[in-house]
Nucleic acid binder design. Structure first.
Lengths: 203, 203
DNA sequence: AAATTATTTAATCAAATGATTAATTACTGC
DNA sequence: GCAGTAATTAATCATTTGATTAAATAATTT
């Protein structure tokens, strides 16, 4: 039985719809998702969707805000934590990201492709520029290696974490079964910080 | 004036439609693209689209096959080239990839998100597993570092190259203008092989 | 329990959208 | 120049789809 179905038993109608919208939007994207798909997934009448959320677009905005927060919200607290070292931040980010992504593997491709479809509306919601200039992480990085462009470093860190999930549909057939995929992602929890430290320490 | 418009002058109708479909599908994705958008972009009557290509779906398949080839086709010849060293392959892949991606920045997110929407149909078209087991690249890699999982290595290589483009809508606001973005991607042509060699050489 | 409000449903609407048709124009071989 | 084929167009169809409506049911208030 699908996850949403069993959760539905004890959720309010509004929550059921939001949950179902999350499932359907994330799986198919805004353009391929039908409000009827969402209603069916939620086990409710189609009219209820509009009763609670006015429109497909409004419902999508709500789901999208949650997903953006889930995908990027993990970062800020870790990057801004003044009490951890740079190395610890690399480990914390990777550990948190991979754990979250193993639970929500389709999150990155969904968020990134929807941002592509609507950059002006969605991209500015991210406080990315601010974090990148003012975070403890970037400060520590520049102190340690003033010759390394923090942006390249962050791109590599995020890329190593996110890319295997963005490309999962391509990688999965290579790896065979789901278990082996998970196993490799588990390995990366240790490997990614190690590789990032190599970049940090090379002369 | 849009690229398609000026090319349109000397292209056959069929080619105009295919070009326009490429533009519209790549920008909006299958679900968000309207056949009318494509017809307008091509400067032709809507009925002509079906006259030449039968259906939106058929047209999409043709465009998609081209794009998959463009995104992954670069890889095979380089990975299989027995006459180059491992280090040279890293440089060749990166140089080729970044050049191509600077011309087609929205290609990766398009292909990956469409594969997500239709994995069974699209993912198996890639001969990825074969390449990964049998390529000169993997052979050389295993000879040099039998302790490194080639799959992790390839994920990192592809991630470093592709991720900045997959995440371009997010990164762009951080970088400010387009020129600075291009400049950073140019830098990565040298940096990515260097980082990959670090992973290869670490003890 | 009557009245009021909130929730839910079936039926329906109107617009969007992929596709087709029938007629028109352009082209090609003779 | 004409017959026949190919290319193109405007108009239209049939479905799909987001949204609404009016009626029914459930919950809450008084």
């Amino acid at each position: 039985m699908a996850k949403a179905k069993k959760e539905a038993l004890d959720l309010s109608t509004e929550e059921k719809i939001k949950e179902a919208a999350g499932v359907v939007f994330t799986k198919k994207g805004y353009g391929n998702a039908r409000t009827r798909d969402i209603a069916e997934e939620a086990g409710i009448n189609l009219a209820l969707l509009n009763y609670y959320f006015r429109s497909k677009e409004k419902l999508f905005q709500i789901v999208m805000a949650e997903r953006i927060e889930k995908l990027f919200g993990v970062l800020a607290p870790i990057l801004n934590d003044a009490s951890t070292t740079l190395d610890e931040k690399l480990e914390n980010i990777t550990e948190n990201y991979i754990n979250m992504l193993l639970e929500h593997p389709d999150l990155p491709i969904f968020v990134l492709s929807e941002i592509r479809n609507n950059p002006e509306q969605l991209a500015n919601r991210l406080q990315a520029p601010k974090i990148l200039k003012e975070s403890a992480f970037v400060r520590q990085l520049m102190e340690r290696r003033s010759d390394i462009n923090p942006l390249h470093f962050v791109i590599n860190l995020l890329g190593m974490n996110l890319f295997p999930f963005v490309a999962k549909p391509v990688l999965q057939p290579i790896m065979g079964n789901e278990d082996f995929y998970r196993q490799m992602m588990e390995q990366r929890k240790k490997l990614i910080p190690m590789w990032m430290k190599l970049m940090l320490d090379h002369s």
